[in-house]
Computed example of a mutant assay.
Amino acid sequence: MKKTLTAGILAALVLSLGSPAFAAEKKQEATVPADAPNVAIMLDASGSMARKIDGVSKYELAKKEAFNFGSELENTNVLMRVFGSEGNNKNSGKIQSCNAIRGVYGFQTYDEQSFRNSLNGIKPTGWTPIANALQDAKNAFDQLDNNGKNVVYLLTDGEETCGGNPVKVATELRKSDRETVVNVIGFDFGEGYHGQLTSIAKAGGGEYFQAKTQKDIKRIFTQEAAKLTK
């Protein structure tokens, strides 16, 4: 009986080692180098992102392009955070909303199903804690032990509304021990190239991109993915 059990266990082990899931895991471990870029996608889920463009909320449009962006980041560690998605956009919900930085997808290689599932049930609702979101990205970067560069993509349709100083945090990110840049995508943002969002990108050593439409977001993310994976 003992020999039969042992043989069964060995057979199960061999099957598990040959399973697609195990093979995918081994493939990821083998293909992601120690100097792979670490990409943090910070997605605005504040109340203003519920406004619609051609019948679809800005949040849904941005989320779709964030998914597409992740799928293009081969050999890259990807993280996604959502900010402002709790409480409400009234004073009664401000404290909760301003502290709501949701770590929906921790640093790892892109997995389509997990990445898509990470945003299930999240709706745009509250205030805009950009400084807290950037600080959260900094904390996540500080936990990494690889030596790849750090890149932030902050996608928002407005400026800080929680009293934080995102320009200061972007400056601190830029001064990190490893190469770090902060890029900002202003989606349907009325101030254009002026104001706080431009200052955040400048302080973080990155670029400010103006996106008026979903196609603009797609174009920006496509060209950035090409830079990161070349």
Rank of each mutant, 00 (worst) to 15 (best):
K2T: 15
T4R: 14
L5V: 08
L15R: 03
L15V: 03
S16L: 15
S19A: 03
S19D: 06
Q28K: 14
T31E: 10
P37V: 10
I41C: 01
I41E: 00
L43Q: 04
A45F: 12
S48N: 00
G55F: 00
G55Y: 00
V56P: 01
S57W: 00
S57K: 01
L61G: 01
K63V: 00
K63S: 04
K63H: 04
E65I: 12
F69T: 05
F69K: 01
F69W: 03
F69G: 01
S71E: 15
E72A: 09
E74V: 14
E74Y: 12
V78E: 11
M80D: 07
R81V: 12
G84T: 00
S85I: 12
N89M: 14
S92H: 10
G93I: 05
K94A: 15
S97Q: 05
I101M: 05
R102C: 08
G106Y: 13
T109G: 10
E112K: 15
S114G: 12
R116T: 13
R116P: 10
L119I: 15
I122V: 09
T125W: 09
G126E: 05
P129S: 03
I130A: 12
A131P: 02
N132I: 13
N132P: 12
A133N: 10
A133L: 05
D136K: 10
A137P: 13
K138V: 14
A140N: 13
D142G: 11
Q143N: 13
L144K: 14
D145C: 09
L154Y: 08
L155K: 07
T156Q: 07
D157Q: 00
G158E: 03
T161G: 03
G164Q: 06
G164C: 03
K168T: 08
K168N: 08
E172S: 01
E172W: 02
R174V: 11
R174M: 13
K175A: 10
S176L: 06
R178T: 02
E179R: 11
T180G: 02
N183R: 11
V184R: 08
V184F: 09
F189L: 06
G192K: 15
Q196F: 07
L197F: 13
K202T: 07
A203V: 01
A203P: 05
G205W: 08
E207A: 11
E207M: 12
F209G: 06
Q210W: 12
Q210E: 14
A211I: 05
A211E: 10
T213F: 09
D216P: 04
L228R: 11
T229Q: 08
K230E: 14
